[in-house]
Each structure stands twice: as structure tokens, then as C-alpha cells.
Amino acid sequence: MSVPRHWRESKRRYRLLGTKCKSCKKLHYPPRTVCSSCKSRDLEEYQFKGKGNIYSYTIIRNPPEGYTFCRPYAAALVELEEGEIVTAQITDCDLDHLEIGMPVEVVIRKLFAYGESGIIVYGYKFRPILPRK
């Protein structure tokens, strides 16, 4: 169990907090220290809005150690409104009715826990947009 590793990432992982290049305006998620587009090192925090569409997805039926509690679960490449793509789980969904292009929104969920006594790692997942009544 590594506490500092998760603590270090927690803010960005809870909130989908990325970076924006001050010189070429390119957005990044995951956050970077060197712009992937223009190599500038002048970057600032950028808060992604958390809405997007499924670019591709899969259903994980053989999860790695620590993730069986949600098995089976959907994982996706989510293309955010801002154009960046992030990897995340799709939660609260019907596994038989996912499709490329489906609109999704970000939520915070338990990603995994280090057993019964270790820390719980929380982070973003996406879900189908909640229908409003």
C-alpha cells in the first residue's frame, strides 16, 4: 500500500483537474508539466467540466487484484467536451446497452481499497447522464 502516491494524486483524481498550456492553450488530462503539443513548461491547472461521450469501451470480466468487488464493470475511453480523452470506468450503467457516442458525466466513486484495513482510493468514474424528471 502506498499512501503518498494516492494522496499526491487525490485532488486531481477526485475532481478531474488537468492542466492547460499557457502558450498554446492545449488542455491535458492527465495533467502534465511539459506541454505535449508545444513543449512549453508554462502550464496552469485546468478544471475539466466532466461531460463527454464514450469513444470506446470494454467490459472487464477478469479484473486485476483488488477490483473484483465491482466485477464485471465497464471501462471506457471518454472523449470530454473539451476534446481530451480520459480512461475511466463507467458506473451505474446497463452493461448491455453501452455504445460508442453515448453521453456520460463524471462522478466520484470508490476505485478500490487496500483490503479491509488499508486506505480507500476514491476517484472519477463516468455514468450515463442522469435523466431529469
Binding site: 470506468q89 466520484i108 470508490k110
Partner: peptide, 12 residues
Amino acid sequence: GPDEDACTIACE
């Protein structure tokens, strides 16, 4: 759900 607890509910 299996990935929810009082904390995630409080967050939303």
C-alpha cells in the same frame, strides 16, 4: 452500488 459509500453519496 459496490463502488458507493457514505463519502461518495455525500460528495454528489
